[in-house]
Computed example of a mutant assay.
Amino acid sequence: MELWPPRQQGMKAMIEARLLVERGTLRDQSEDWGAFHFLALPSPGDRVAVDRDEGVHYLTVICVHHAPVAVARGAQPSAQVVAKWTGAE
Rank of each mutant, 00 (worst) to 15 (best):
M1K: 02
M1D: 10
L3H: 14
L3D: 14
L3T: 11
L3I: 11
W4Y: 14
P5Y: 07
Q8N: 00
Q9Y: 12
Q9L: 09
G10Q: 09
G10L: 08
G10N: 09
K12G: 10
K12Y: 03
M14D: 07
I15T: 09
E16Y: 00
A17P: 05
R18G: 06
R18Y: 08
L19V: 02
L20F: 12
V21G: 01
V21P: 01
E22R: 14
E22Q: 14
R23E: 06
R23G: 00
R23A: 02
G24N: 13
T25R: 13
L26E: 00
R27Q: 15
D28H: 11
S30E: 08
S30R: 10
W33L: 05
W33S: 04
G34D: 07
A35F: 13
A35M: 05
F36D: 00
H37D: 02
F38G: 00
L39N: 12
L39F: 15
L39K: 10
P42F: 02
S43T: 04
D46E: 12
R47P: 00
R47S: 08
R47L: 13
R47W: 03
R47M: 05
V48C: 04
V48N: 02
V48P: 00
V48K: 02
V48R: 05
A49H: 05
A49S: 05
V50T: 03
D51M: 02
R52M: 02
D53H: 08
E54R: 15
H57T: 01
L59P: 07
L59D: 08
L59S: 07
V61S: 08
V61A: 07
I62A: 14
H65T: 12
H65Y: 04
H66D: 15
A67E: 15
P68Q: 10
P68H: 11
V69T: 13
A70I: 00
A70N: 08
A70L: 12
V71M: 12
V71G: 06
R73A: 04
G74V: 01
G74P: 05
Q76P: 03
P77E: 09
P77Y: 13
S78P: 01
S78F: 01
A79S: 14
A79L: 01
Q80C: 15
Q80W: 13
V81R: 11
V82I: 08
V82T: 12
A83M: 09
A83L: 00
A83W: 14
K84N: 08
K84S: 09
W85Y: 15
W85E: 15
T86L: 04
T86Y: 06
G87Q: 10
G87E: 09
G87I: 05
G87H: 06
G87K: 13
G87A: 14
A88M: 04
A88E: 15
E89S: 08
E89M: 09
